[in-house]
Write a protein that binds this DNA or RNA. Structure first.
Lengths: 336, 336
DNA sequence: TTGTATGCGTTATCAC
DNA sequence: GTGATAACGCATACAA
């Protein structure tokens, strides 16, 4: 049975209120009393009971981070950064893996954890638009651009523009047959839609013909999907001389297929990805990519949540959209 | 203000005890009452208050998983699998990133979260031996082999034997100058020590001379360390014709350096890693490796913890060590 | 089978 | 500056 406020109070010869004051850094405590209480706390190894505290204050000091999957290096990195940012506010982060399942995401938004978490940072995959607003009362910050302007804050890079930048880079290399890997059909695939739009805009801007046969669809954004999509692309009549992949994993998979089939990268086909995960810095060839300012995204997400959680004036302001910078990173896979 | 037991009871015209019974699936409730209560629960959207429940039962339904870093694909995968396994017991997993910092690991073991979590699954990096037993009362399952036999359960593969298997594979290829990347000096680097021991055993078993100059030390197990270590190895007088890397990230970094310097893999240097992360299946060349049965490790870790947590007879048994299988996966990087 | 009453460890409102 | 005491929402011993 761990010691409680009561035990500390008894040992220090004061009331529990005084101990509580000391624990919570209340200022109006005489130095003498404070010292005595502190001594008792140390001696007993007192640790405040989180449950009791939460029951009273309705605050758990825990925020949830919901991502589609931790296996994806981008989300893993994001998770690590958010944990770090949260730590500076002494928040604990509960990481939730949705596996992109609509039902799980819905539960999250509905607030099935309502009592347990103070806020939610959410990177939705299966949910979009209004469904995201059927929310409980838990403050939420969305990661990734939304087309719809709902009641939640969100922070993201300009996906469409970033995709256009990547595509422009390929066109600027003199490539005339620029393919895309990563298109998705379902309505909630906002990221895929936006990157496709950026790709198309840049293609047309370069005076190239829009060719649907150069666009490969994928189920998910994994290496295996990229590999399969690339194989399909190579089957088609018009063979591309460049590929924009909607994320780095797709690109790494695509490169694998190309090399396997004796196609040189970047000489025959230039490949660019998206996310700037660490893998791309050590692959052969190293991977050109679009680098979002992930550290900044993480920091801003936590900051926005903190503002909502604070009882300050900003807590009830209109939802904000924060745009974060991205930059092009040119490496071997397009440096031909 | 979310509804409580009281509100549900009022609406259903019963006492809170009855509602509580229904919520907790107590069997002796008349079908009629149960239906009425359930209706009220649904209508009000009642969700039990986790804090209050925990205050009473001293159980939070949350277990912590502490890993050095989520960015590492192996730990990310492990985390995902453990979350899945825990889900089947309706446990929530709180993921803690220690960054390999001794202080953080110490806090964990000391139980600074004591009140908040029911159990801990821990993959220590900076702590070893006795320090791991200075534990609180929170049940703990250790991931990764320990030399010392402390008071906690642990589940792991036979690191030494697995490392020997990898090295034997290289020797079996006829390579005579087999290097190792991943040695570490500090005492708590149990994994590195064991893999080095396995490597050495296999080297001597093959009748090769033990050459300390073929062993490269690393700070951490990242791609960059592998790349740097390989570069150092190439500088030394005796150039290796094979390398056993203590994990896949090191191997991928090493391969990058080799290819960059025009050394062919596997023709000139065969490379094998450890962990079987997804990257290795799509890299060029694809990566030979030792594959631990990670899914089984995850499942067993959760099972062991469950036994400790259960109030059954097994709860106070002596600590168990569970050994999990591994297998060699031969891919292009050694298939020369 | 169901209801009443008590306490889990805190914080917060009042007195003193 | 400090102490007594009432909640917070739930589970459960005990009664009915």
């Amino acid at each position: 049975m761990p010691p409680g406020l009561k035990d500390v109070a008894a040992r220090a010869g004061v009331s529990i209120k005084t101990v509580s004051n000391v624990v919570n850094g209340y200022t109006h405590v005489s130095a003498d009393t404070r010292a005595r209480v502190q001594e008792a706390i140390d001696a007993l190894g007192y640790i405040p009971n989180a449950a009791a505290r939460q029951l009273r204050t309705r605050r758990s000091g825990v925020i949830a981070l919901a991502v589609p999957e931790l296996q994806s290096p981008y989300f893993a990195e994001m998770a690590g950064l958010i944990v770090q940012a949260a730590e500076r506010r002494s928040w604990t982060v509960l990481i939730d893996q949705t596996d992109g399942q609509a039902e799980r995401e819905r539960n999250l938004v509905a607030g099935l954890r309502r009592h347990a978490i103070d806020g939610l940072i959410f990177s939705p995959l299966a949910l979009a638009g209004e469904e995201l607003s059927r929310g409980g009362d838990t403050p939420m910050v969305l990661l990734g651009e939304r087309v719809w302007h709902g009641p939640a804050d969100h922070v993201a890079i300009d996906n469409t523009e970033a995709a256009a930048d990547a595509t422009r880079h390929l066109c600027g290399l003199g490539r005339r047959s620029v393919a895309a890997i990563g298109a998705q059909d379902f309505a909630s695939a906002v990221t895929a839609h936006q990157r496709l739009a950026g790709y198309r805009a840049a293609i047309e801007e370069a005076g190239l013909a829009w060719d649907p046969l150069l666009v490969a669809r994928v189920e998910r954004f994994h290496r295996a999907d990229g590999a399969a999509a690339m194989a399909a692309l190579l089957q088609r009549p018009r063979r591309p001389d460049a590929v924009f992949c909607f994320n780095d994993l797709l690109a790494l998979g695509a490169i694998r297929t190309l090399l396997e089939q004796g196609v040189r990268v970047p000489e025959d086909v230039a490949v660019i990805g998206f996310d700037d995960i660490e893998d791309g810095r050590f692959s052969t060839p190293t991977l050109s990519t679009v680098a979002p300012d992930t550290a900044r995204i993480a920091r801003l997400a936590v900051d926005l949540l903190a503002e909502r959680l604070g009882d300050g004036p900003a807590a009830s302001d209109a939802p904000r959209e924060v745009r974060v910078a991205h930059r092009l990173v040119v490496r071997e896979s397009t440096a031909g």
